[in-house]
Design a protein around this nucleic acid. Structure first.
Lengths: 144, 144
DNA sequence: TAAATAAATGCAACATTGTTTCATTTGTTT
DNA sequence: AAACAAATGAAACAATGTTGCATTTATTTA
C-alpha cells in the first residue's frame, strides 16, 4: 500500500496519467477506503461517470501498476492499490486477501508472510495468493 | 478427490441425485479430467444440454457437497470434485489450486499443506485458499 | 408393470457485466 | 491560444447469471 501522504495528483503524475476528475475521484476512493473495491462500488460512489469509463479507468490503472486485482474467491473483480513493489512490468508476487462472506468486503492483508512455495514439479510459479474467508470484525460484532 | 473406482452412478446415488443423462455426463467429465472445469467447458463437451440445465446441475452438485468452487483468480467460476472431507454442511476448509495463465487450466493441488493461519485479530476465519499462478507443464514445454 | 409424484429439463425472459467502436470533449504541450 | 493526444460517453453487442413456468423424465408405490 502507498502512504497516505501520497496525494492523488502526485500518484497520477508519477504514473503519467492525466488529471481528470474521474481518475481523481477513483484514486481518492481507493486511498480513503484502503480495501479492495469493485467497479460496482465505485459506480455508486461516482454518479457522474458511466460504467464504461470506470471500466477503462480501472484497467488503465492496472496496466500502469497502480492497481492490482484482488483475488477473493468471488466472481466479481475487485481492485486494490498496489504497494511500491508493483510496477507495470512486475506485480508483487504474493498477495493475501481477506473476504468477509457476510458483508462482502475484501481487505488486503499486509503483514501476512508468504507461505513456502510448495514443490510442484513441472509447474512454474509466477505468483501466489492466499485467500482467507470468514467474518470481518464488523460482521462478527453484529452477531454477538 | 474421489477414487477413480467410484462410478458415476454410485456417486449420484450416494448423494440422492437422480440418474439423468446430463448429470452422468457432467460427473463423468469431472472424473475423467480431474481438474477444475468451467461451465463453458462443459457446454462445449455436452451439446445436448442447454446452459440453464448445466447452470443448475453445477449448483445442485455444489449444494450436495459433490463439487466445490475452485478459486483460481479468474473471474470465471470453476468447479472441482470434492474429496471425502467435503459434505453438504461443511466443505474442506483449505484448498490449493494452480492456474495456468497460458492455457487457462486450473488444477487442484492435493498435497499442499495448509499454511499456518495468520494471526488476524477480529477476523474469524472459516476457510483458506492458496492460489498459485504460473505455467503448467504443457505450456512450459511449448516454449522450451 | 403401470400410475402417481416429485424432480429435472428446456424455453422464455430479463439483469448484469464485459468489451469494442467511434464521435466528442478535455487535458497537456508548444 | 492552437494543436495534439488522450479521455470520455453513447451505442451496441456478447457472455454470463438468474428466475418462472410448462413439459418431460426418473423414481416410487400400488
Amino acid at each position: 500500500m502507498l502512504s497516505k501522504s501520497g496525494s492523488v495528483a502526485k500518484l497520477l503524475r508519477a504514473n503519467q496519467l492525466r488529471q481528470t476528475p474521474i481518475r481523481q475521484r477513483v484514486l481518492a476512493l481507493f486511498l480513503e477506503h484502503r480495501e479492495a473495491l469493485s467497479q460496482h462500488f465505485l459506480e455508486q460512489k461516482i454518479n457522474e461517470a458511466d460504467r464504461i469509463t470506470l471500466y477503462r479507468t480501472l484497467r488503465t490503472f492496472e496496466e500502469k501498476g497502480l492497481l492490482h486485482r484482488a483475488i477473493d474467491g468471488t466472481d466479481k473483480i475487485k481492485f486494490a492499490l498496489c504497494g511500491e513493489l508493483c510496477s507495470p512490468e512486475q506485480h508483487q508476487h504474493f498477495h493475501a486477501h481477506f473476504h468477509c462472506d457476510s458483508c462482502g468486503r475484501t481487505l488486503c492483508l499486509e503483514n501476512v508472510e508468504a507461505p513456502a512455495a510448495p514443490i510442484l514439479p513441472d509447474l512454474s510459479v509466477s505468483s501466489m495468493h492466499l485467500v482467507i474467508r470468514g467474518k470481518c470484525e464488523l460482521c462478527g460484532k453484529k452477531k454477538a
